[in-house]
Design a protein around this nucleic acid. Structure first.
Lengths: 131, 131
DNA sequence: ATTCAAACTTACCTTAACGTAAGGGTAGAG
DNA sequence: CTCTACCCTTACGTTAAGGTAAGTTTGAAT
């Protein structure tokens, strides 16, 4: 078993799916789904098959959590994350730059829609209070 | 044809589905769906089968539009609207009162979640801008 | 080492809320 | 009557979950 265990030099905390669910507020079912569709694969698995996540995985999941209410599809979210990764390694990558700009615009539009929805919700609630 | 036309005493504007779609920003498909499931039936139909909506229908649709981003199911939205109708005619109706209070609480919680999502979205966008 | 409860897995099924496509009818202006 | 914009229905598909059941794994406690 020792021969097959990764080097313990990796001191990063390892988390199970329950930990991620608690940290993000997403359901385990959702997180498994994201693994299955490739949006956020677990970094690795225990010998018994448990998903094992790293802090980087958690960070990525938190980004996903931010994008989700904006209405991006799972595929779009994956694509954007890949794009950001690409730019981290190659800031001059023109196609990635263009894609990022596109996402930024759409995110802004969707954000504005979200703000509008919030405004409408507040009016709705206020109206309901008067009943 | 004149004999079969409703009395022109009804001066309320009549709208087709396209008008409602434009006024609300919802898709025609969505509006038809709401008719089919009974959430917002068209008041009537033309002889040719076209859905005909009234301003009251439109007002109801706008309420639905406010609730939708809060994540209520179609059934819940219908139920709340019925409850509000009940209370309009019978403000002392205890079960309706209780139900309204329940919906109000849930709407407030969901509103708060929406506000949190907006906050997260803003941070996400700001982060994206720095890339 | 053993036990055990909590946590996890897979696989299959279901669901809500539409979107899309195909084919056809309606309404009203000209 | 023609024509164009609009509308209809039906049926199938899509997306993103959620539920459930049966079986396995994990790790702390003893």
């Amino acid at each position: 078993m020792d021969e097959s265990t990764p080097a313990p030099a990796e001191a990063a905390p390892r988390m199970h799916i329950g930990d991620i669910a608690e940290a993000t507020g997403l359901s385990q079912r959702t997180i498994r789904h994201y693994d299955e569709v490739g949006l956020l694969p677990a970094t690795t698995r225990s010998e018994g098959g448990f998903r094992i996540y790293t802090p980087a995985d958690l960070a990525r999941m938190l980004v996903i959590r931010s994008m989700k209410p904006l209405g991006f599809t799972l595929e779009e979210m994956g694509s954007l994350l890949d794009t950001v990764d690409t730019l981290a390694g190659d800031p001059q990558n023109a196609p990635a730059r263009a894609l990022l700009a596109d996402y930024l615009q759409r995110a802004t539009e969707k954000r504005n829609k979200l703000a509008l929805n919030l405004e409408r919700a507040d009016k709705f609630i206020e109206d309901l209070r008067g009943r």
